[in-house]
Design a protein around this nucleic acid. Structure first.
Lengths: 342, 342
DNA sequence: GTGAAAGCGCTAACAC
DNA sequence: GTGTTAGCGCTTTCAC
């Protein structure tokens, strides 16, 4: 450990008690301005840094927030994490990662015990964990503040998300505008909030255009590449196959393109494809994939900020925390749905 | 944090002193096997987890290791991190993430101050940070133990890697065996250890087969998709273009495939392509990409294990820690280099 | 092979 | 406004 300047050294040099130093460090009230300056000068001179372990132990908090996730796409995790880290750095908090096995029998129990013992001050929940009522309620029961990302937790838990339905609506509209009417839809992992809402957006746009929603054109996927392939195989084997496929994320859309290529179909001439998320993959397949950009990194930043604020603000204001924070999405129209575009 | 199970609870239930519990938790010697089991049973029953703050305070360390990285591919980061986390969990260590801006003026200074402040017990360095002599030496100066991943740090710093050269040699051999002789090579980010060694492997295989290494067939890339596209464009515009391209990672190889598709070339008939890393992308492009599998997750696990061991072992044995740990790679031959394979 | 006692550096509660 | 006094839950030291 470092050359260990302690709070006592600072107090001695400033000629005050350690409690006063503590007050200054924690920006508490009831310190005369002049005293505060003296202490700050001593802190600077000694290059004092409070020991986090000691703070945590005495203060019964860890200065740590937790990020709970289950097997997300590497891209989602890396971006979200980058945003969260940035917010943490600003207020000297640490980030503790916790991979959770969604659906495992003792998921709730394990998570709660991890929360307790790591003394996490608050948690960020990502899908599909945020859609588990049991888990969210258990965390609530522990009185651990939380914020959910990309979904709405049950009951006024603050959430950070985009308007999934509107985004899916617009993408469907785009495909319709390109002249398609037999538009297939591949749903995402059934437990994700986003899956349901993207599907709603698709349905709404189809109805708005007076197009029928054909049951055989709706497939269940799992948000992964493989499930996109399987769905595409089924769709393209139909007696009357679709002319466009809207997959509810990029991985599945890439699976569709893979199958189309294998069948020697030309995209978008023989089949148009659209995805969701704007992952790097969407610019690495050929042709480039039309998709919806979700600002994952910003969502990480904002959700951590929200959580961190609630940790310092009075717990009293928790009730008006029916805080949905909706960030903007962006349509990315590319060559997989429009001829002649890259 | 309220109803926390403490070491006293465990000691009481197991009928031993807290010191004995501490010994078991920390895997120290001098505990009879039977006692150890009793304690472990109590730990399990109570679902006890040591309080990190208290451990840190009493033990004058943070029980935290740091992972330093600079803008890696999401896939690399997610996998490495998963492995590291697993190793940490086994010994109850925490993981602190630290994104570092490689090449920034005050990179070294910032990193050192972060190390001091967070009281990190040891660090894992990833490329290209591990190739910065200044950074490695500064960390050394702080007496913070470290392990480097996917490269060899200067001077006997323990490293975990694969035999990059041999892997590249074998892939080149494969392309030669497929009948190619005009084989282009796209080098990776010049500061990465892997780049140099993959290139060496390519050269060695070409020479071994009695093939000339044509300067115009060697391109500098940066390990990203875009640089692969640029290199491919140049290569395919050559009066006498290559019949095969070996890109030193999958992202660049995908860039090559993208350009080939755009030029209406058929892979592998008109041009064979090979990559390196076996990222998910390699199975999402069409045709599937021939590549080398690197066990990133295992590398994360092993390197963390190595670091963690060195934190507990006597610091005396540091000198014989000229520990290269070389893991196995695996050839993945797919449709991008062999006709008729998927 | 095991245990008792003494802190680690800080914050919280309450005095003054 | 400021100081005093107890711990927080663990590791360390040293005794047995």
């Amino acid at each position: 450990m470092a050359g260990s300047v302690t709070i006592d050294d600072v107090a001695a040099r400033a000629g005050v008690s350690i409690k006063t130093v503590s007050r200054v460090v924690n920006k508490e009230p009831n310190v005369r301005e002049k005293t505060r300056e003296k202490v700050q000068e001593a802190i600077r001179a000694l290059n004092y840094r409070p020991n986090q372990s000691a703070r945590g132990l005495a203060g019964r908090r860890s200065y740590l927030i937790g990020l709970l996730y289950d097997n997300p796409s590497p891209n989602y995790l890396a971006n979200l994490q980058a945003g969260v880290l940035k917010a943490c750095q600003e207020v000297n908090y640490g980030l503790a990662l916790s991979p959770v096995s969604y659906g495992e029998a003792d998921m709730v129990e394990n998570t709660v015990s991890w929360l307790r013992q790591s003394a996490i001050d608050g948690v960020l929940l990502t899908p599909p964990l945020s859609d588990s009522k049991a888990l969210v309620e258990a965390i609530h029961g522990e009185k651990v503040p939380m914020v959910v990302v990309s979904s709405v937790g049950p009951g006024g838990v603050p959430a950070v998300l985009i308007d999934e339905e509107k985004a899916a609506f617009q993408m469907t509209e785009h495909l319709i505008a390109e002249g398609h009417s037999r538009i297939a839809f591949i749903k995402g992992h059934p437990d994700h909030y986003a899956s349901q809402h993207r599907y709603e957006g698709y349905k709404a746009a189809m109805e708005a255009a007076g197009l029928a929603i054909k049951k055989e054109l709706i497939k269940q996927g799992m948000f992964d590449f493989e499930s996109g392939k399987i769905a595409a195989d089924e769709l393209l084997s139909l007696p009357e196959p679709p002319t466009a496929v809207f997959a509810s994320n990029d991985d599945m859309a890439a699976g569709v393109m893979h199958i189309a290529h294998r069948r020697k179909m030309v995209i978008p001439r023989d089949i148009a494809v659209a995805g969701f998320d704007d992952t790097p993959l969407s610019r690495q397949v050929w042709p480039n994939l039309s998709t919806v950009r979700q600002p994952i990194r910003d969502m990480g930043f904002v959700s951590a900020e929200l959580l961190l604020e609630s940790l310092n603000g009075d717990t009293a204001e928790k009730d008006d925390a029916e805080t949905f924070r909706q960030l903007d999405f962006e349509m990315k129209i590319r060559g997989s749905s429009v001829i002649g575009v890259d």
